[in-house]
Amino acid sequence: MRIVVPIKQVPETRSVKMDEKTGTVIRDGVESIVNPLDLYSIEAALILKERFGGEIIAISMGPPQAATALKEALAMGIDQAILVSDRAFAGSDTWGTAYVLGEAIKTIGDYDLIICGERATDGDTGQVGPEVAAHLKLPVTTYVNGVNDWTDGALTVTRLVEHGEEKVSMQLPGVLTVVKEVSDPRLPTLDGKIRARETIMPILSFDDLKLDLKLIGLKGSPTRVVKIFRPKVTRECEIHTAEDEAGVALSVERLYNFLQEREVV
């Protein structure tokens, strides 16, 4: 089974700070990591390779330093990595990103499966996986939590939906987006790290992919961010301090009265 795993390098969002005065994001000194949810797609691909044999190719669109994320995928056991990088791609929204990634994946040739993480923790849209599938005119199965069989060219998977778990059969080639339940990601190995260091990583640019300039970057992206602001919160909170026994008793008294006033007990 030949598997493509698109991954994204993201800022460690929990450490992102805001400049309170300007309302902008302070990116300096923020660590870049492999999108945590992509570790599950890497793991799913590794499990499939262990069962069915084959090859896994990780691909990432991003600035040159996104190569670090691909090296980590290699260290986990991925066979090859491709970086898709060009200044012309900057500013692409999910549509533009899916177009570039889709065209880059076409250069890989025959493959059976594309496995994406559910979403990236920075953009948090979860759109690129299904959009890549649409661009490549492939079937997609989302929210996959388990991969069962691969027989007669069809992959059987389970997916988590609102009302339960659906069992789906998908004729390959196709695209999966996987959720955390699919399996716990393994750690990079020492051997893997050495191999990652030695692996030559091709870089695909705008010229290599012969893309339509009108469809990429800010210009090719349907959506525009027009305003960024700090969310305001509006409730008037009645605060009680429970620092000693009396404070606890008073606070609990007040809480209970509140529950009664609002008719919830």
């Binding site: 800022p11 969002t13 929990r14 992102v16 700070k17 805001m18 309302g23 994001v25 923790t121 920075d122 953009g123 948090d124 349907p222 959506t223 525009r224 961010v225 027009v226 305003k227 960024i228 602001f229 700090r230 969310p231």
Partner: peptide, 16 residues
């Protein structure tokens, strides 16, 4: 919400 929920972003689709 954007960037892990640290900020809110307002987004428009001008032409498409």
């Amino acid at each position: 919400p954007a960037i892990g929920g640290n900020i809110m972003a307002t987004i428009k689709t001008p032409e498409c």
